[in-house]
Design a protein around this nucleic acid. Sequence first.
DNA 1: GCCTAGGTCCCGTCA
DNA 2: TGACGGGGCCTAGGC
Lengths: 260, 260
Amino acid sequence: MSVVSLHEPSHRETLWELEAAFARGDTVSVFGECTVEYDGRAASSLGPGARLLVLKPDGTALVHTDEGRTPVNWQPPGSEHRAAVRDGRLRVRSTRTNPSETLNVRFSAVDHLAAYAVTGGRSVDVVGSEADLKARILEEPSLVADGFEPQATERETDAGPVDVFGVDADGHPVVVELKRRRVGPDAVGQLARYVSAVEREEPDGTPVGGVLVAPSVTDRAAELLAEEGLDHVAVDRLVAETDGTELEETDVVGDDDTVG
Amino acid sequence: MSVVSLHEPSHRETLWELEAAFARGDTVSVFGECTVEYDGRAASSLGPGARLLVLKPDGTALVHTDEGRTPVNWQPPGSEHRAAVRDGRLRVRSTRTNPSETLNVRFSAVDHLAAYAVTGGRSVDVVGSEADLKARILEEPSLVADGFEPQATERETDAGPVDVFGVDADGHPVVVELKRRRVGPDAVGQLARYVSAVEREEPDGTPVGGVLVAPSVTDRAAELLAEEGLDHVAVDRLVAETDGTELEETDVVGDDDTVG
DNA sequence: GCCTAGGTCCCGTCA
DNA sequence: TGACGGGGCCTAGGC
């Protein structure tokens, strides 16, 4: 694959290469001194500094500082990138509609630009998601409660879709909410909402059970569960149950040629 | 500022330059053909493809494809980057503890590398946050209800902190939940949790009001509010109330030197 | 360190 | 298209 890279280009050179890169569908990285302004769902302004700007062919724009996983400013996919030279500065503007948002990056100097055709697989199979937990529960419903029988997943209620819905050993409805990680009060509120919604559907007086399936719960969540008469079932994360040593095996001790 | 850039470097050259960049505290962008493996809170594997790898001096690692604002794989700040040549491939590994996580990027070929000292302001003042909405409410409490008197913000309850707590014209407690954007059932659940918690604290029978302050609510959220006896007050987002045309004014019609 | 909730959350999925 | 909830969410603020 070929890369186009410019070292300390003039604004005109940068402009030209950005145009070419957009036309090719390349992904572009730009290092330089810039200010950033954003206006849309919120608004922000960022003073001068040396930063990394990444522009993707799908309309994504990312402004990164030297810290943090989250870009300091950005524009989501679907935006439109345009570049121009104004007032002696290179301006890269990315706009989108619905909601209407504008990102404005103004470079006083561009120190480096690289354009490259990024291709290949984009999605990863993530193991250990809530979907995996659901499969595990459906495979072994007794994990939820002895005699529990699942009847539906994503069952709709007035309060939203229930992860797993079924009946207990007595035939009473049970709402199951699944979480892949330790949960706090919000998850209890979610489960309580679903239970209330099902109770409203049922004939008066029918008891409706609620079970929160998660690796663990915070103290406050436990209190709220007790107050609401709901249950918690601890189920370890699936990824922990597998022999997760594959990555390690590739890393033999005694590395040569190692830095960092 | 100076940039070091390598065009189609050998693995040894890449290794050397990565070591130097890490030592200098530079931010690095690498374009090349790679596979990615991740193991930690979840696990994933990404087949061969041309991608962008960004390495920051704070330990952040980002693997980007040509689509999406979210990196296809990453490592959060605080991780440790190491590079090595193994089996004819350049391996960049980023690890962290608590939780224990490993990101493994293996390059069959590096097409471009650039290292640069990213510096300057990192944080932006975002206007239009929930904090701004709170200030607006405290400034003009009648927006919540005629005669509403705020008494505390972030008041603690058994169910978590209440955004704004006060009393209505009759002296009865009122719980206010603020949202900067249109809300769904989850926000209603949150408000209901807080109201229930305050009711538990109060002498039996004391009515406790609940008000959701948000630009708008979904139909389902409105139903749930009604069922819970809670109120909604529509307050437009603050950013919309300002003359949000600053960015536009800088963009005079009839751009010269515009591409894209 | 954990807990709690916000976020320009992003993102997929489904009605 | 909007709505709804998951996420390796990330991040800030308390305790």
